[in-house]
Write a protein that binds this DNA or RNA. Structure first.
Lengths: 215, 215
DNA sequence: TATGTACTATACCGTAAAGTACAGAATTGC
DNA sequence: GCAATTCTGTACTTTACGGTATAGTACATA
């Protein structure tokens, strides 16, 4: 994401916007989060943001561009959250923070709907929309890489033996993350999700010292 | 599911149906699979099945009942597939069969769309529809239990030591299954999914002999 | 063959969807 | 102050949606 969103660059001349783009995108995101992409109407988005439709269209384009802007916004925040959690020096604390943030996000404790926003809104569209599926793939690859690097860092720091298998370890947490999202959406409780995440962390601990198996 | 679907009980009198219910539900399922629940219109379903809308409404009720019938149909088939794969006597072969069937299904090789039908169509609706979210939860619990029982069986059969942790082992495959579904929908290739599944199976092998960790 | 019954086909209904035209309002540069 | 520019608000257009009325049709029982 090198280029900034056009909609967030305030125009120099003319009547200024009466709204803050990020606030609007947060409302838009929450509405899509609850009802899905196809299940959300522009009128709902208009009501949720307090903006009239021409303002939404003027600022973001059509429904899909508005959705993609909200998705970008969400993914940027998720990346920042992950980066912060992964920056914790101790591996165990770092991984716990990762799972805890996911659980908090997916249970909708702070804001938004349940489960992962991308999983529950982009996936149904991904089959027929290459633009959306590309964003999804890149986001997934990013998650894989981020966790892989964290384990590599732990090996470099001597927290794990050089023989450890960072790819397998990363996969445990990635797969667990998908399960957390799905089960949160289905209505599982925070406590149940916490147990699942702890099981995954326990697994990581059990095989952290083991070398990679035969391919 | 004790009670049979009403739509599958042929009436005794009057003009008989010109269509086979299961065939129709398969077409309905495939259409929802591609476009999502909210993204699919009754006209699309009518075109995909070759039935006119009044026939669909007459046989299944409204859109949601039609969807739920297709979902039940799908889940029954998935359960049967899983049961068959889990019935393979050797644990390793059994687990490989489980992953292979998922991959085949999720890549849309034989029929339907990509990813898990339930994941990609029911999840967006699950947040606002308790009836759908209940079905999803029950299906998830069923998957957890089926895999747990398979590992328990392997312990009973002496394939795994009594100290093995069937819950953790089951979780590896369940979480992997969710990841396979998500990545298939995002467009990952069969080969990439196979590698992921093999990593999970490898993990199972690595910790199969280990006892459960501290809770 | 007569009759009841359920299915099929066409056409339609009311509503809600995405998107827009246009007039007025707010701000900047001149 | 005045023109240029951009946003806001109301009302609208067009299309597609879920769902149905109705007329006709095919079959089972009697």
């Amino acid at each position: 994401m090198v280029q900034k969103n056009l909609a967030s660059i305030p125009p120099v001349r003319g009547r200024p916007r009466s709204f803050n783009t990020d606030d609007v995108l947060a409302r838009v995101r929450d509405t899509f989060w609850r009802y899905g992409y196809a299940g959300t109407s522009m009128d709902q988005l208009s009501a949720a943001t307090g903006l009239h439709k021409p303002s939404l269209y003027g600022a973001f384009g059509d429904k899909k561009r508005l959705y993609l802007a909200a998705l970008d916004n969400y993914l940027a925040q998720v990346r920042a959250d992950f980066a912060e959690a992964l920056a914790v020096p101790t591996l165990a604390e770092s991984l716990y923070a990762v799972t805890e943030r996911s659980i908090e996000k997916y249970t909708g404790e702070s804001e938004g709907g349940t489960g992962c926003f991308m999983m529950n809104t982009a996936m149904p569209e991904a089959a027929e929309d290459p633009e959306i599926s590309r964003v999804v793939r890149e986001s997934m690859d990013g998650l894989d890489r981020a966790l892989f690097r964290r384990f590599q860092k732990a090996i470099d720091a001597g927290e794990l033996p050089p023989s450890a298998d960072p790819q397998a370890l990363a996969m445990i947490l990635v797969a667990n993350n998908y399960e957390l999202s799905a089960k949160a959406r289905a209505g599982y409780s925070r406590a149940e999700l916490r147990l699942l995440a702890d099981k995954a962390l326990d697994l990581v601990g059990r095989i952290a010292g083991a070398p990679a198996g035969n391919p």
